[in-house]
Amino acid sequence: MTDPAPLLEVRHLRVEFPTRRGRLVALDDVSFSIAPGEVLGVVGESGAGKSMTGAAIIGLLEPPGRITGGEILLEGRRIDNLPHEELRRIRGRKIGAIFQDPLTTLNPLYTIGRQLVETMTTHLPIGPAEARERAIGWLEQVGIPAARERIDSYPHQFSGGMRQRVVIALALCAEPRLVIADEPTTALDVSIQAQVIALLKRLAREKGTAMMLITHDMGVIAETADRVAVMYAGRIVEIGPVREVVKNPRHPYSAGLMASIPPLDRRVERLAAIEGAMPRLSAIPPGCAYHPRCPRILSRCAVERPELMEAGGTMAACWLYHRHD
């Protein structure tokens, strides 16, 4: 196969939180890769480890959480064991991050123009005059009307949707190789959401940026991602092409997740729901973590943990797809 070398490779990533009652395993043996220009969607319920995976890659895990196993490679080079300063430089130049809440990303004391210009002059070989011109270009690209007049405004002078677009411009202006977008459109209204999604998608395609798109909104995933990883209780339970995972999920959890989305095109008497709730990290069941809620449980599910295996089109961590040969 002639797949391009992955831009990001995560191998057997493990993140733990030491607590008084022992260590909690927040991420357990998470492996995936993203190619240049590819959008990998990461979905799952809150607490499944989606955001934690993103944070681990950018080196922004909330203490006391820390990586206790595995490795993260960016363009073939390990970045999980770099000294703090070096990682910070790489993060600024090669990785862009977009978080859900634009207020935590923007500095309220600086104009948005200054924030964009500083980011660019720090990471790109350009002067402030050119950076300012580029900043205006970026603001126009993310759909800020009258960008030239508004570049010297402060973050509070923008609406929530506008601010989120400024955050996106800020994450992209240093032309990173990898963008980690954690619920980038969740705080936006649907009419604005579509604009932002279209922009992110175009950038990945045109500039060959690899993107990890973390969201609980399957609709956004369906129209943006090339591949999807479904996470449950700190592990990837299924990963594969978006069409397969959305239309024909193999893992019973992915299937339950898809089925529980209320349809827009018809009314159903009763929505399919997954009974129960995702376990807490302190009480992850043995075997397959999903087995207490699974409608297709086998006897070994409660005892033996399934690894990702070939499931005819996707990889699924489920004993249903185990072959004996």
Binding site: V190, S191, A194, I197, A198, G219, A222, E223, M258, L264
Partner: peptide, 17 residues
């Protein structure tokens, strides 16, 4: 509003913002 909603059934469709 209805046009703008991302819909699972329409994988790959362009939304009209």
């Amino acid at each position: 509003l209805m046009e703008a909603i991302p819909d699972l059934a329409m994988t790959g469709r362009q939304r009209t913002p």
